[in-house]
Amino acid sequence: MARAVVFALLALVVLFAWRGEVPDVEIRYLPRQTQTGRIFPDHPLGQGFVCEFDGLHAVDVALAPLGGERVDIEFTLRADDPKGHELRRARVAASELPESDDWVRFEFAPIEDSSGARFYFELSAAAPTSHSPWTRYRGVPYMIRPWGGRVVTGSALEGELLPAPPRARTDLQHADLRALAFAVDGVDLAAGPAQLTLSDPRTGEVLRTSRAGPGAPHASGWLFFEFELLHDTRWRALHYALELPQGSRLIAGDEGLSMVAFHSSAWSEPSVLGATWRGEALHDRDLVFRAWSEGSRAALVTRLSERGDRRFVYGSAAWLLSLVVLSSLLRRARDRESE
């Protein structure tokens, strides 16, 4: 019995050792595929979230290095709204930015009553940044043509999404196509709009059009074109045409333009409120981030009781009993040996 009690206590210690390791809100996005691009002066990027517990004191943002001159990144935390009351500020110096894809922490004085409150943070810089936050688009990616090695210039680009054959693997394997993202070396949306037109390659019928926004310079990131769900996209051919501002540069690889197709309808998430760009909400995507509040034992117990339900209680009881029986078994084995 004593053995069982010792191991039960040990289990509690091991479990509660996690209290500093459990983020309040976290976007886990693997593998990371789409980075937002450089942050330009006067075009801050941000994200909204709802805290579960009190004591919010840090936000980590996943940043990818893009190259170029390093500049400090400013962090501003606001209450309720992307343009709401400023609560905290933090800064990461250029010299502290990571060499590779990694989390960057913005720490600030704890906010004692953060439980249930809405927050928006913003990242800004005095010059275009050398690092980019990662963006998770709220869809199911299928066709992923990764960031290629060449730049394609032009204001009118087109191509086709095709089934297999002629492709080795179909470009569109799912129904419900909802968005296309294109890898961009540089597109200045402030100089003019970018438009995507999807059409049937056989009939020429225009199926969907989409404009990318908001108007801001876009560099070394992915440009998303969202449109109303196109249901019958499984294993079909589609023609796409891009109209871009003058001087636009897109990224391409061996298979053509670097792009990702996203499927499935949008969903809302109570704890994450979507990304922001210059204070404008983008509900179809999120920055990859995690927020840290006070890692109390009570917070851990709350989460376990909410998510574990009765099965968890039964399981814990069975585990404890198994230790009691094991102790009894070992005791009997010892007694038998000494007989």
Partner: peptide, 17 residues
């Protein structure tokens, strides 16, 4: 270590939003 330091925290405490 496996159950209380791995399985339970990962399945019940750390979720993606």
């Amino acid at each position: 270590v496996f159950l209380w330091g791995g399985l339970v925290p990962n399945e019940y405490l750390v979720w993606s939003s």
